[in-house]
Design a protein around this nucleic acid. Sequence first.
DNA 1: CGATGCGCAAGAGCAGTGCTCTCGAATGTG
DNA 2: CACATTCGAGAGCACTGCTCTTGCGCATCG
Lengths: 216, 216
Amino acid sequence: MVTEIKAVARRHLATDGANLSLRAVARDMGMVSSALYRYFASRDDLLTALIIDAYNALGAAVEKADAAVGERGDFRGRFLILGRAVRQWALANPAEYALIFGSPVPGYAAPANTVVAAQRTPDVLLGILVDGLAGIAVRAPAAELAPALRADMTAARDAIAPSLPPDVFALGTIAWIHIFGAVSFELFGQLNNVIDARDDYFDYQLRQIADLVGLG
Amino acid sequence: MVTEIKAVARRHLATDGANLSLRAVARDMGMVSSALYRYFASRDDLLTALIIDAYNALGAAVEKADAAVGERGDFRGRFLILGRAVRQWALANPAEYALIFGSPVPGYAAPANTVVAAQRTPDVLLGILVDGLAGIAVRAPAAELAPALRADMTAARDAIAPSLPPDVFALGTIAWIHIFGAVSFELFGQLNNVIDARDDYFDYQLRQIADLVGLG
DNA sequence: CGATGCGCAAGAGCAGTGCTCTCGAATGTG
DNA sequence: CACATTCGAGAGCACTGCTCTTGCGCATCG
């Protein structure tokens, strides 16, 4: 039942965007709006469920794409596949992407449940770096981390990818942020009337970032 | 009068986020909601005006920051200043930043008026590259542009920065996208509970991107 | 077999929204 | 002074999220 509600809500999300109407969802299900409150305490609750689903769907798509790569030792190739998987999922589910990576709604605060689902995709990226580090394909980065920043990076990698040097971990966050930035830039319309060869452009960016990270 | 309405709307935007209430704005001005329709044809119209203002405010802040740099030949320094100016403006005006760089509202299509205002900030960045190119501080990039992408880049630089080689122009777009991505990532809460030294982290990213672009 | 309880949905209602339309008051112009 | 134009108020429509009460139907007990 809740899955059916979420399915209909997802359909509405795809057409109407983030301003999801509970009444419209109920109408589509032949119910009255108050009936939905048996399954979701509020509209925000429904949105939270959709957000967690979206994080998991993206994470699953990326995990599947990386797992399908035969040559596990081709770390640069795996990174490119990962980036493309993120973008493909975003292009296929723009509303859900905007839900999790777009501007947050004012009063809304993401519950702790979301973080584990949100971590799946960056986890895959860090996994590639961990594997690549073992194969010494990842070069040592040339940049300097300020002390406070180094402490943050060390603490974060301790919790997520203990075997990664903080400098490599930091470069991984840059890669993740740029993938997010590039997809958002395209999806939110900032590329309109400027760049048409979007597949090529995204790949170009991935290669540049791979170089920056040291995935040669 | 329209400026006063926009001022009140901006104040509401800062507290209530993107779902701006015309009635609340009118209430704050001691007027009734229908009176606002003399000055703005619709709520979207008011939002469009705010968007253009936001683009111009950001552009002006960045232009001012770059113009204040004494050593015009320190292209890497000017790039860092530019990035910090973008972030500072975004942190000071989060709602307006989200308005122009966040997920677009579903039915909304940006009018042509916005593009000239939107171009001001990337123009400053490209200006630094143009200057830096004359001083041969910008190294030749190592990456390859696919033919269709090269055509896009060439056309775009013809319209914006004719003296820039397409490869350098392309690197400039990467820099701009990463600045946007890094600011959005921080502002939209994706850094929460992970990185606290945010000034340091942003500067670290800027240095890495400066290296990537070749601003040594 | 009948009564009780519970899960579920419907309906009314409240406060709020964007937007349209009409009407009256004030203002400045000929 | 008379006119026209601008401006804001008010009512109203359709919509929203959400609460509360009501009642239907079904299953489980005594």
